[in-house]
Amino acid sequence: MNTQSDLTWLPATGVQLRKAGVQFDAIRVDGEKGRDVADWLARMTGGDPGPIVETATGRRGVYFLVPVGSVSHRAWPDGVTRFTASAGHVSYIPVPALNGPTWPLSWRYRPTTPDRLVHTRLLCTALHSQE
Rank of each mutant, 00 (worst) to 15 (best):
S129F: 00
H119Q: 11
D115H: 12
V71D: 10
V90Y: 03
S72Q: 15
L122G: 08
L10S: 09
S70P: 05
P67N: 04
S106W: 06
Q16A: 15
R108K: 12
V62S: 04
R110G: 07
P49H: 02
A97G: 09
A38Y: 02
G50W: 05
G79K: 04
R18K: 15
F24H: 11
A26C: 09
V90S: 11
G61P: 07
T13R: 13
R59M: 12
R60Y: 06
V29N: 03
R59V: 12
A42V: 01
G46A: 02
Q23G: 08
N2I: 11
A12K: 13
L122W: 03
D6N: 14
T112I: 10
V29L: 09
G47M: 00
A42C: 00
A26E: 06
A85Y: 10
G14D: 11
T112V: 12
L17T: 10
H89V: 04
P67F: 08
W9V: 10
R108M: 12
H89P: 00
L41H: 00
A85P: 00
K19A: 14
E54Y: 08
P96Y: 04
L117E: 07
D115Y: 08
Q23H: 15
L65P: 05
R18P: 03
G79A: 08
L123E: 03
T112M: 09
K19M: 13
L10Q: 12
R82G: 04
F83C: 03
F83E: 08
A38N: 01
R121Q: 14
D115N: 13
L10W: 05
T84G: 08
S86T: 13
E32F: 04
R82L: 15
M44C: 07
L17C: 06
Y109D: 04
W76H: 04
D48N: 11
I52M: 03
P111S: 10
A42T: 00
S70G: 06
R110Q: 13
T84D: 15
P67T: 09
Y109T: 01
G61L: 09
T8L: 14
G34Y: 01
P77M: 05
P51C: 06
E32T: 13
R110Y: 02
S70Q: 14
A42G: 10
A26L: 06
W103C: 05
V118R: 05
D36N: 09
A75F: 05
R121T: 14
M1A: 14
T8Y: 13
T84K: 13
D25H: 06
V15S: 11
L105Y: 15
Q16L: 11
